[in-house]
Write a protein that binds this DNA or RNA. Structure first.
Lengths: 230, 230
DNA sequence: AAGTGGTCTAGACCACGTT
DNA sequence: ACGTGGTCTAGACCACTTC
């Protein structure tokens, strides 16, 4: 290579790790030394090693140096798209039916979880997303109207709450939980499946700053898979 | 701020996005202009914007410039640890029982998926992982002995195949799939649950370079949740 | 005290995609 | 052709951690 790029460095370091030239726990040469070996600036080495450390393969500490991780916690990055795009990316046509749209008091556990008084009304939405007119996802959502007052007048028959929130209230942080649940009566009715069918469920809670904006349970139709690459 | 760091830039850009000073679709000033505004080098701006683009908030294209994403694909990063550590991080004691350990021919669909001849024997392992002596995870694994010959003599009663592979054959790439499945007869027997219970299942296929190393199905005991933060 | 990574700078050249 | 981001460089100073 006439000019070593940070990608070349990453590839070569990866090779040395994979071939166990640098086994788990091994202390790498310092950035300065590697810069000399590869004939490039320290900044280039730094970017390569920093990215490898971010993906969990290296541990870096000032003064202690860079070592090959003994417990390479693989980080899988999942894309969490808007449902409409998720459907359309599969080459299907997306449609949504609003099954419920009302202001009401939340159950106690939800109010507690959101850190809101139980006496405060929230917007409760239930939506069925269809892919090529077949049930794809059952969405059960609660929205904090104090956080996004304008949602009360949003045309949620036309644009999904999901999408509207993304456009109108950029979310800064949130928790996501993935789990499996046996379909309950409502899930079964809405998705057109048998009670007890295993469903892939995502629970998401999002905030703007520290203010809770929305909590949503997404129950995917049977057979749904979420895939990623390491 | 006396000296603008790439973190400061990120924070300020994020603020402008959240407060919709820069709404979805908005074209940001060029790196050079932002460098002037913030009084820092272009490289600093570059790093800030590059990281925001990586997390899905910005779209960047040469000549076209940097825009606020209209469809912020949130990227959630999941840590995929070694099972033993996953159990121990929950404050429980980890133990594993090897239920099956044999060389045999793989089923046709698996051979095809791995891209290996069906006539080639693979190592088949079934392991039950226990947390505080309660079933935690049922692991069903196939290992390509050609990729890691030494696994045939590894003490898999002492160290789990998972862990052994991590230490002895650093994996470079892989596919992970998450799904929900109803427990079958074997799942139910091994995990001590009813047939049909919804299980959170991970399927993982890992490679060294292009050579398949191992395929594994991980069926978690009921109630398992995988959580992450955005 | 000393060595390592963390970051910033000012400048340069290049690759790409729009025009 | 031109403007944007993508990357590299050589140097500098700093922050953290170990010794």
């Amino acid at each position: 290579m006439s000019q070593a790029s940070f990608r070349d460095i990453k590839t070569e370091v990866l090779r040395r790790i994979e071939t166990r030239i640098w086994p788990p726990g091994h202390l790498l040469p310092s950035e300065t030394e590697l810069g000399l070996e590869f004939g490039c600036a320290r900044a280039t080495i730094n970017r390569a090693l920093r990215e490898l450390a971010e993906s969990g393969l290296l541990d870096r500490r000032r003064k202690a140096g860079t070592t090959v991780s003994r417990t390479p916690v693989r980080k899988a990055t999942l894309d969490i798209p808007i449902t409409r795009l998720e459907v359309e990316n599969r080459g299907a046509t997306h449609r949504a039916q609003v099954l419920l749209h009302e202001l009401c008091l939340p159950p106690a556990h939800l109010a507690a979880r959101l850190g809101l008084p139980q006496s405060m009304q929230l917007l409760h939405l239930k939506t069925l997303h269809l892919a090529d007119d077949r049930p794809f996802l059952f969405e059960d959502r609660w929205v904090n109207q104090k956080a996004v007052p304008s949602i009360l007048t949003a045309p949620l028959e036309t644009i999904s709450a999901n999408e509207w929130l993304v456009e109108n209230a950029l979310i800064s942080s949130g928790d996501i939980t993935f789990m499996a649940e046996n379909a309950g009566v409502e899930d079964a009715n809405v998705l057109g499946i048998d009670i007890g069918t295993a469903l892939f469920v995502i629970d998401r809670l999002t905030r703007i700053g520290t203010m809770p904006v929305t909590q949503v349970r997404l129950a995917y139709a049977p057979g749904h898979r979420m895939t990623t690459h390491m």
